[in-house]
């Protein structure tokens, strides 16, 4: 149980760090997360099942998701706020309908069973311990890369889009391009997260990529604190506990499922009422430290 929960936390952290780039830093409310998660999961699962090495397959899953993200970004570039949210939501549902109906590739509602566990350079990660070890390394890698980006001038540019697109344009910033990169980056990590999920659970079907999972990811980002990667990890830890613990209380599966949904939707509403910016806020850049590492965590 410990390994299972921790592995889930890591998978969701990686996915939500990607989502945080779009939602927290760039300020766009994307409901397409389940689609990218699913694209990554199906791509990687199908590739590995046809003999492609594990590492190449998960990266391919990420890249395919990023390509879809880029296209989605191109189409939605003019949209703001609610419209962007709805367009991404429609995109996610369309993607899921493709998962359901393109039975030749995805086997539709039957799902893909028997997805192999990871194997790198001949070493098969079959135990949960080995698994956890591998995924922790991946999480650290993702965290280092994202932190590098969000702390750089690129990250600051993302924030200007969130704060005031018009003003950023007036300063000569190419907002459309930056926004696209942000969505594609977010989609990439979403795809990688999906791939990791597929290889851990070893079975996927379209019902794993419904809007509910998107909402769950959004709550992780919001609860932890938008624009703060450590907050996202904290959010993943909390929400996985909230979601998975009812399963160990000996309730019937259907009741447990609706109970967990009830709990996390209540958390979402309460959070918005008490702390709309999440538990950990964003970190400021302070002048004394110039652009040195180790910014102090402050609540927004």
């Amino acid at each position: 149980m410990f390994y299972h929960l921790t592995i889930l936390m890591i998978i969701y952290s990686i996915t939500c760090i990607g989502l945080n780039i779009v939602v927290g830093y760039t300020g766009f409310f994307s409901f397409a997360r389940a689609a990218f998660f699913g694209i990554g999961a199906y791509t990687s699962a199908l590739l590995v099942m046809s003999g492609v090495p594990f590492l190449i397959a998960i990266i391919a899953g990420g890249i395919l998701a990023a390509i879809f993200g880029w296209i989605l970004g191109l189409i939605t570039v003019e949209m703001t706020g609610d419209y962007f949210a709805l367009a991404t939501f429609a995109f996610a549902e369309m993607t899921r309908q493709v998962f359901i109906n393109w039975t030749g590739l995805t086997r539709g509602p039957l799902g893909l069973p028997g997805i192999p566990r990871p194997e790198i350079f001949g070493f098969r990660f079959s135990t949960n311990q080995a698994y956890l070890f591998l995924y922790i390394i991946l999480l650290i890698l993702v965290l280092i890369i994202t932190e590098m980006y969000v702390k750089s001038p690129f990250g600051r540019l993302l924030k200007t889009i969130r704060e005031d697109e018009t003003a950023a344009q007036s300063l000569g910033k190419n907002i459309a391009k930056t926004k696209n990169i942000s969505i594609a980056m977010g989609a990439f990590f979403g795809g990688v997260g999906g791939a990791l999920y597929a290889h851990y659970i070893t079975y996927i079907d379209p019902s794993a990529f419904v809007l509910h999972i998107t909402i769950f990811f959004l709550i992780i980002v919001i609860a932890g604190g938008m624009g703060n990667n450590y907050g996202t990890i904290l959010g993943a830890v909390m929400l996985v506990l909230v979601r998975e613990l009812p399963r160990y209380l000996g309730l019937s599966p259907a009741f447990a499922a609706s109970l967990q949904q009830m709990v996390y939707s209540s958390i979402l509403v309460i959070l918005m009422l008490v702390r709309p910016r999440g538990l950990l806020g964003e970190r400021k850049l302070l002048s004394e430290q110039s652009s040195e590492e180790g910014g102090q965590i402050r609540n927004a």
Binding site: F29, D82, A85, H212, I215, L218, I222, Q261, M262, Y264, S265, S266, I267, L268, V269, M272, L273, P276
Partner: peptide, 11 residues
């Protein structure tokens, strides 16, 4: 408000 009504919806 948007996030809150999403919560309400799933509730």
């Amino acid at each position: 408000p948007l996030v809150a009504v999403v919560g309400v919806a799933f509730f």
